[in-house]
Design a protein around this nucleic acid. Structure first.
Length: 727
RNA sequence: GCGCCCAUAGCUCAGCUGGAUAGAGCGUCAGACUACGAAUCUGCAGGCCGGGUGUUCGAAUCACCCUGGGCGCACCA
């Protein structure tokens, strides 16, 4: 909150307390100060109808007159900051002193730089964000894009607001589908495995699509798949318990392990295959995916010789190995894509590691009478719900829900979180309602859990802390291959469009993409000279420069494409279903990611030019000398004064926007904010010219545009949209 | 059938913890590059905020009903 609003809040509070002899909390009084819908009404307002709470009586207009009358005599206490106070209808409106407001905000941004607006929490929350969570053995589809970008953006937003965040990717690495995949792998003879070497994921996906189609006709395939899965789960479960200090029967030990791991070692599977045991034996939970590489080589060698026997006929061990190979190559592929998009995780988990504890948990719940058996399966009755929640199949294998129960408990033991956010599509609402409902029941009935005190403790702690951050579907996206649109194809379309647009640019605007000031850093003389040269010698480029140019173009077009795609998913409110339209995604005009990127690179370019043309224009110096108390930056009479004020007003709202985004788990609050700011700036840019003016005119405006740049850069960063210095 | 979500300009969406005259972008039309980058900007036109009832001094916003659309509803995830 800026000092203007802050002092106004204090003023109002003082007025009410003095006149009505009551005490107002800081929070309450803050709510009284609002922003008018239109700038002509003023900069802040107090609505009279809220005053009825504090003993003011009458029609809203009369109350407004009354409080106006009360405020007027004391107005001089804040009139250094405010110019005017007036009533209009039911409101009392306040007008800030614009010169001081601009100076104060600009000073703030200049001194905090890209950290302007960062929040500090007295008690930061530990927030777990579970997002992306793709299924292994499938290409990364656009279906997981929304979860990925919303989750990543929320992580950044929460962090920016001062909370502690753990980003978790919960791989869909388990379930009957893998039974199916194994069945496909073993069923089809004479497969051309050269496709595997080239693109293993698409190869596996091809197998999956094929058997899925066939299974619709042939019921025995489904059965085959379920049997395979059962075999897989049992093998994993017993291998997990066998020979290790952590027995299957001891979920307490598993929870202990999670507690110990709180220092940071992620939950991992134990080594599952003998060939991996030697290298990964240091810690029973430290299954290193990379050691799977040896297995893949052996796998490929076997396959090249047409030797599937080892995997398909040698009992469960072969199937476990297959599963492990699928998982390893999938994770590698996902990481490649995350890396391209700037997505990061603190921890990779998988359903399998919870699945192996499913039986144990089901047993505890049955023994305590919280769960019961219905038609052979295990269910928990949830109050208010018609159907009970199913936590285990009648063949004893785990389900999505039982795995999520286990996962949440292990996570609580490991992280002691205050909030666990699941970024998952709204079609899974029922699942998360059930999950939360189950933890409420576990808490209320925890006294019934006798044998497992730690399970009891952590299960109770989870209650009320799970949040399903859901989002709408993307409707009408044309299917290109199978019924899955691959994310890479999608990004490639956008990249091609960006490349095309880049080709239309005049040569001189292309370059090596250096920032004028890095992180608000000032350039030295040599750098400026170099920049200046780059700006003028476009024609005389050497072959080397040509290559550099091509690399720059490739990089830039990819970043623009990614920016377009990501922003498209973050610009609307989560819950709305998005009508997908290629023309909208590939349009880089108006409310788009590239529009924002363009604005930043344009500011950048302008700052560069100003620095090179105006002597002594130097951000570091300005920063040191800057003093909003003594030096009023701008003159009210300047033609661009009001437009600058609007920009600065929008800048001052940044922290509020970030707070709202976190509170509502809604990255689009940042998108809207950033679009508004960019739009205000572009208007200013188009209407007023800086170059050609003298130092004194340019100095305050240079500070203003660098403030815009700092805030826009941060906003783009929170939205996972790449920032380009030039484009 | 039951449950959850959505409905605002031709299209895509803001605005929704009730408050001042419902805002943008795209598209259409009319303009602005010898100019700090036209991926930009200026302007025109475009609305019973799906329909109804209620609550309220006040409803796009809250409640209920209806219509239309999306999603889910026991051994998939």
């Amino acid at each position: 909150m800026d000092i203007f609003k802050e002092s106004l809040v204090l003023f109002i509070r003082h007025i009410i307390e003095k006149n009505k002899k009551i005490e107002l909390s800081a929070e309450e009084s803050q709510k009284l100060v609002k922003r008018p819908p239109d700038d002509s009404f003023g900069d802040y307002s107090v609505a009279s109808y809220y005053m009825t709470k504090y003993g003011f009586k009458g029609k809203p207009e009369q109350i407004a007159e009354e409080i106006y009358g009360i405020m007027l005599p004391d107005f001089n206490s804040i009139n250094g900051l405010f110019d005017k106070i007036e009533t209009k209808g039911a409101y009392v409106n306040f007008f800030v002193n614009k010169e001081k407001f601009i100076a104060a905000v600009v000073k703030d941004v200049i001194s905090f730089g890209n950290d302007y607006g960062r929040g500090k929490q007295e008690k930061p929350l530990k927030v777990l964000i579970d997002f992306s969570s793709p299924n292994i053995a499938k290409p990364f589809g656009v279906g997981h894009l929304r979860s990925t970008v919303i989750g990543m953006s929320l992580s950044k937003i929460y962090e920016f607001c001062g909370h502690n965040v753990v980003k978790i990717n919960y791989l869909g690495d388990f379930g009957t589908q893998f039974g199916k995949l194994v069945a496909a792998f073993c069923r089809y003879s004479g497969i051309d495995f050269s496709g595997f070497e080239k693109d293993p994921i698409k190869f596996l996906y091809g197998l999956y699509v094929k058997i899925h189609k066939e299974a619709e006709e042939n019921k025995s395939i489904e059965e085959d798949a379920r049997n395979n899965f059962k075999e897989l789960e049992e093998a994993l479960t017993s291998e997990y318990a066998g020979g290790m200090e952590y027995k299957l029967s001891s979920i307490e030990n598993r929870i202990n392990k999670a507690e110990d791991n709180s220092a940071g070692l992620p939950l991992r599977l134990p080594p599952l295959h003998k060939s991996a045991t030697a290298s990964a034996s240091a810690h029973p939970f430290a299954f290193d995916f990379e050691t799977g590489a040896g297995d893949i080589c052996a796998f490929q060698a076997d396959i090249a010789q047409g030797n599937k026997f080892r995997f398909c006929n040698s009992g469960s061990e072969g199937k476990v190995l297959l599963w492990k190979i699928f998982r390893t190559i999938s994770k590698k592929e996902f990481e490649r894509i995350y890396n391209m998009m700037g997505i990061e995780f603190d921890s990779y988990e998988g359903e399998a590691e919870s699945a192996v504890f499913s039986k144990e948990i089901v047993k505890i719940l049955l023994e305590s009478g919280i769960a019961e058996i219905s038609e052979g399966a295990v269910v928990i009755k949830i109050k208010g719900a018609k159907l009970p929640a199913l936590i285990a199949k009648s063949d004893g294998t785990s389900l999505y829900l039982s795995r999520d129960i286990a996962t949440a408990i292990f996570r609580m033991a490991k992280y002691n979180f205050d909030k666990a956010i699941y970024v998952v599509g709204s079609e899974q609402s029922l699942h998360f309602t059930q999950l939360s409902g189950i933890f409420e029941i576990l808490k209320d009935n925890s006294f019934k859990i006798k044998k497992s005190p730690k399970f009891k403790t952590y299960a109770s702690l989870v209650a009320g802390k799970l949040v399903h951050v859901k989002f709408g579907r993307i409707i009408g996206m044309s299917t290109r291959r199978g019924n899955l649109v691959f994310l890479e194809d999608y990004i490639e379309e956008a990249r091609l469009k960006a490349e095309e647009k880049l080709g239309e640019r005049p040569e001189e605007t292309a370059g090596d993409g250096k920032a004028p000031t890095g992180e608000m850093r000032e350039k030295d003389e040599a750098e400026i000279e170099e920049e200046a040269e780059n700006l003028t010698d476009g024609a005389a480029q050497s072959a080397e420069a040509g290559l550099k140019q091509k690399a720059w173009k490739d990089d830039t077009s990819l970043k623009v494409g990614i920016g377009a795609v990501i922003f498209n998913d973050l610009k609307t409110r989560r819950v709305t279903d998005v009508n997908f339209n290629w023309d909208n995604v590939l349009s880089f005009d108006g409310q788009t990611g590239p529009y924002l990127q363009y604005t930043v690179s344009r500011i950048n370019s302008l700052m560069l030019k100003l620095i090179s043309k105006i002597e002594n224009l130097n951000l570091e110096n300005l920063k040191n000398k800057f003093d909003c108390e003594t030096g009023i930056l701008l003159d009210k009479k300047d033609a661009d004064f009001d437009d600058i004020f609007l920009i600065i007003k929008q800048i001052s709202r940044f922290k509020e926007a970030a707070g709202e985004a976190a509170e509502q788990n809604e990255p689009s609050a940042i998108s809207s904010y950033a679009l508004e700011l960019a739009s205000l700036f572009n208007r200013y840019y188009q209407n007023y010219r800086l170059i050609g003016n003298d130092y004194n005119y340019i100095k305050p405006r240079f500070l203003m545009i660098s403030a815009v740049r700092a805030v826009l850069t941060r906003a783009l960063n929170l939205l996972c949209v790449p920032v380009l210095e030039k484009m």
